[in-house]
């Protein structure tokens, strides 16, 4: 085992099923990093207890496992007991590339935190609730921030559309529900970058395009 070159170990890890990654990370020290990097690349958070556990166990060390997270999805946490945990989790994810939120309460500081994530490429927010719409922060995007690959706002996102519009965030792909406040400004800011524009002409039942057998539209909008 010790004589195996690291490149070969990485190749093996790259071909393992996801369910084997955590056991694999316990094989030997040289197997740990690559296994954990793949295992923790994507996480989905459905309950506040789960978020608390993740934060306590992994996220407080920004150079540890937290640095492996690339894709994070929050789903169906419409009311937090302690909303501050949301912001603390996000702030600890400096390597985050995709951030998805679906039917979850968001803090007013969210726009500012989003803009401070330097590697973020995909931002998708659907039908969120707010601690207070008035508290939504407005920050200009840092000048060095390039366009996102995808900015997606669907359902009732309250003043978040306008807050992001004021930040002058740009994107190559825009997916926007037409009733969103600030939609024209969001499009205008991306006028030189947007290659694909998707508009939902109307809005029913809190989420777009729900189909028979797809009760919450989740599988459609959170593919993979």
């Amino acid at each position: 085992m010790d004589s195996l070159p690291q490149e070969l170990i990485d190749k093996i890890i790259g071909n393992l099923p996801r369910s084997s990654l955590l056991p694999c990370s316990l094989v030997a020290k040289r197997w740990r990093r690559g296994s954990q990097q793949r295992a923790f690349q994507r996480i989905e958070l459905f309950y506040e207890d789960q978020v608390n556990r993740w934060y306590r166990d992994t996220l407080q060390d920004p150079d540890g496992v937290a640095s492996y997270f690339r894709v994070v999805r929050f789903k169906d946490i419409p009311l937090w007991n302690d909303l501050t945990i949301f912001g603390r989790v996000l702030k600890s994810l400096g390597s985050l590339m995709e951030f998805w939120v679906y039917r979850t309460e968001i803090p007013g500081e969210l726009p500012g935190i989003i803009l401070s994530l330097p590697n973020l490429k995909v931002l998708s927010i659907t039908a969120v609730t707010f601690e207070s719409k008035e508290l939504l922060s407005t920050h200009p995007a840092p000048p060095q921030r390039g366009p996102l690959d995808l900015l997606e706002l669907r359902g009732d996102v309250g003043g978040l559309g306008m807050a992001l519009a004021r930040s002058q965030l740009t994107s190559r792909r825009l997916t926007l529900a037409v009733p969103i406040q600030g939609i024209e400004q969001l499009i205008m800011h991306s006028s030189e970058t947007v290659v694909e524009l998707k508009l939902y002409g109307m809005w029913l039942c809190g989420f777009p395009g729900a189909r028979s057998g797809d009760n919450d539209g989740f599988s459609r909008y959170f593919p993979g």
């Binding site: 037409v178 947007v194 694909e196 524009l197 508009l199 939902y200 002409g201 109307m202």
Partner: peptide
Amino acid sequence: HPLSLTALATLNIELFMGDPSPRLTNILCR
């Protein structure tokens, strides 16, 4: 208030039921 989208290659409109809303046609017009 025209919207000049200089790189736009694909435009996707999704409607569930009913006519395109006035706001949608208003945005398209721009």
